[in-house]
């Protein structure tokens, strides 16, 4: 499966689920992806840990790039609402750099009726990609922690769909 085929048609809603923000490019990639999706008129919800949310909210204080129809929510709150059936997204991007991220991607695979895309980065992308492939989760991956451009290119490929 190529990256371009992971999302086949234009989604109406998207979730960005952020993990531990210790790897610098997560915040940049999340803000970029949120902006791209917003430009494509897709309603975005961002879920993350307290620190991950604070990094985004401080960097985009006027919510120019992260104007979220669904808001910027605590990661546990997002999971709880998915369990309760009060929230879902057509596509969920789960940011993964550690094995906890893989567990969150697997959890969303169980809870969501939409497409799950793992956005993998950091120093162990091969290991994480293998773990995600094992559970059948589509992956876009770029090795590295500081230069966001390789991951940006992968994001650009995956947010291109047929209609």
């Amino acid at each position: 499966m190529t990256d371009q085929k992971i999302i086949q048609t234009k989604p109406n809603t998207a979730l960005l689920l952020l993990g531990c923000p210790m790897v610098p490019i997560q915040t940049s990639a999340a803000i970029y992806l949120s902006a791209i999706l917003h430009k494509k008129e897709i309603d975005v919800t961002i879920g993350g840990t307290k620190a991950a949310r604070a990094l985004i909210e401080m960097a985009d204080v006027d919510r120019i790039y992260t104007e979220c129809a669904g808001g910027i929510l605590d990661v546990d709150k997002v999971i709880e609402t998915m369990v309760d059936g009060t929230f879902d997204a057509d596509v969920s991007f789960v940011f993964v750099h550690n094995n906890a991220g893989v567990a969150y991607a697997a959890t969303l695979q169980t809870l969501s009726a939409g497409t799950i895309v793992a956005v993998v980065f950091g120093d162990e992308t091969m290991l994480r990609t293998n773990e995600l492939t094992e559970i059948g989760c589509p992956v876009i991956a770029a090795q590295g922690s500081h230069n966001p451009l390789p991951l940006k290119r992968k994001i650009d490929e995956v947010v291109s769909w047929d209609a």
Partner: peptide, 8 residues
């Protein structure tokens, strides 16, 4: 009272 996170 909390949802479990995990790999089945």
């Amino acid at each position: 009272d909390k949802a479990m996170i995990g790999i089945p």
